[in-house]
Simulated assay, not measured.
Amino acid sequence: MPVKNYLHKIDLTQPKQLQTLVENRRVFNLQNCELNVFESYQEAYRVPLTFHDLVITSMVRGKKVMHLFDKPSFDYLPGETVIVPADETMVIDFPEAEADKPTQCIALAVDARYVNNTIQYLDNYYNSDPDTEHNWKLQFNQYHFANENEVTDLINKLIRVCSGGDKAKNIYADLNLKELLIRLMQSQHLLQVSSESGEWNNHSRLHHILHYINDNLTEKIAVDTLSRKAYMSRNDFFRWFKEQFGITPLEYINRERIKLAKQLLIDPKNTVTSVAMQCGFTDVNYFVRLFRKAEGITPGAYQSCSLQHNLSA
C-alpha cells in the first residue's frame, strides 16, 4: 500500500458540548470558505449530508463507508480526500464508530464564485501556449484519492487558519485555498493527459511528452531529451511541466517507474535487482529508497506480500 499522508489530529469536542452523537458539527466561517469538523460517536447507517457549495473533505480519524454518485460504495479512511460538487448528497455509514473510537472528518465548503475566479486565473495564466490550452476545471470522475504531501500540508494549514483567531485569517486562508484548488486541478489534469497519451500521442505537446516517457521507462530519460522533444529550453520545459501538472518531470518519471516495478514484482521470477534495471534504475539502492518512500515498504517486502496474497487467494 502507498504511504499515506495523514492530517494532524484535531481535538475532539468536549462531551458536554456534543449536540448529537452522529455527525456532530463544528463550523468555522470565513469569507470564501467554511470549515466543518464532523464527529460520530456511535454506529449509524445511511446518514445523508449535502452542501450547497463545492466541498473538499478529508478523513482524520476512524472509518466511514461512502455512497456517492450512484457508484459502488467505498471505505473512506484517514489519509484520503473526497471532493463533491455542490448539491450532491453523500450517504454515509459509520460501521465502527464508538464512544471511545469516534470518526472525525473535515469538510471545506468553498464559495462557487471563488472557485470560478481561481479557474479563470488558471485559464489566463497557463493558457498562453495554444498547444496546451484547455479549459481548467475540477473533475469529479476522480473524486476519491490518497492525499499527496502538498495537499495534506495545505489542508492542515487551512484547518489551523480557519479555527484560529488571527485577524488576518481571511488573507491566509485565501492564499492556501487558491493553492489547494490549483494543485487538485493540476493533479487531475495529469491523470487525464496521462490516460489519453497512448491513444492521442500527437494530440498535443503534453500528450507527446507523456507518451514518450511511458514508452521509455526502461531506458535513461534525460530532461534535455524531453525539452528537445517539446521544442523548449531546459529551464522553460521544467517550468512549463510543473505549471501544467504540479510536479517535476523527474517526479513523474519516478512515479511511473514505481508503478511498473509493482507490476513486475508480482512475478516471483523477478529479483529486486532485475526489476530495478527493467524500470530504468541504474542504482538499486536508489530504487529501494524511492520505492520505500512511495509505498512504505521495500521492494522485497512488497514482493513477499504479493506472493502471500496470491497464494491465499
Rank of each mutant, 00 (worst) to 15 (best):
T89L: 01
E243W: 04
N285H: 06
Q104F: 05
Q142G: 01
E80V: 01
S73P: 02
M277T: 13
S233Y: 03
E256K: 15
T273G: 04
T20L: 02
N176A: 13
D123V: 00
N285I: 03
E179R: 15
R113T: 11
D174T: 12
R25E: 12
V27M: 09
F51P: 00
V82W: 03
R61D: 12
M66P: 00
F245E: 01
V60K: 10
K269M: 07
D70T: 08
D111I: 02
Y143F: 15
A301E: 13
I182L: 05
Q263C: 01
E148S: 14
A301K: 13
L30M: 10
K169T: 05
V288I: 15
D75W: 04
Q186R: 15
N149G: 02
F238E: 09
I92G: 02
F94P: 04
T118V: 14
Y231A: 10
S233W: 03
Q186V: 07
L54M: 11
V22F: 10
V272R: 02
C305Y: 11
L12M: 09
L7E: 06
D215H: 11
A112G: 06
P268C: 01
A97C: 04
E243V: 00
I213H: 07
F38I: 04
S204A: 07
K262C: 11
K71E: 15
D123E: 13
Y41S: 07
T13I: 14
L184S: 04
E179Y: 07
P72Y: 08
K269V: 02
T218C: 09
K262W: 00
M185Q: 06
E96D: 13
M1Q: 07
G165Q: 12
I253N: 06
Q308S: 12
D100H: 14
I106V: 15
Y76L: 05
K64N: 09
C105Y: 03
L210A: 07
V91T: 15
V223S: 06
D129C: 09
Q244E: 11
T248L: 03
T271A: 01
F281G: 03
H208Y: 12
K71I: 00
R113W: 00
N135R: 11
C279I: 04
P130R: 10
K4R: 11
Y41E: 05
K262E: 11
L68G: 07
L307H: 15
S306R: 14
A276Q: 03
N310R: 13
Q186S: 09
S40L: 01
E219R: 14
L122G: 02
R61Y: 12
N201A: 13
T20D: 12
K178I: 01
S304N: 08
L180P: 05
L30H: 07
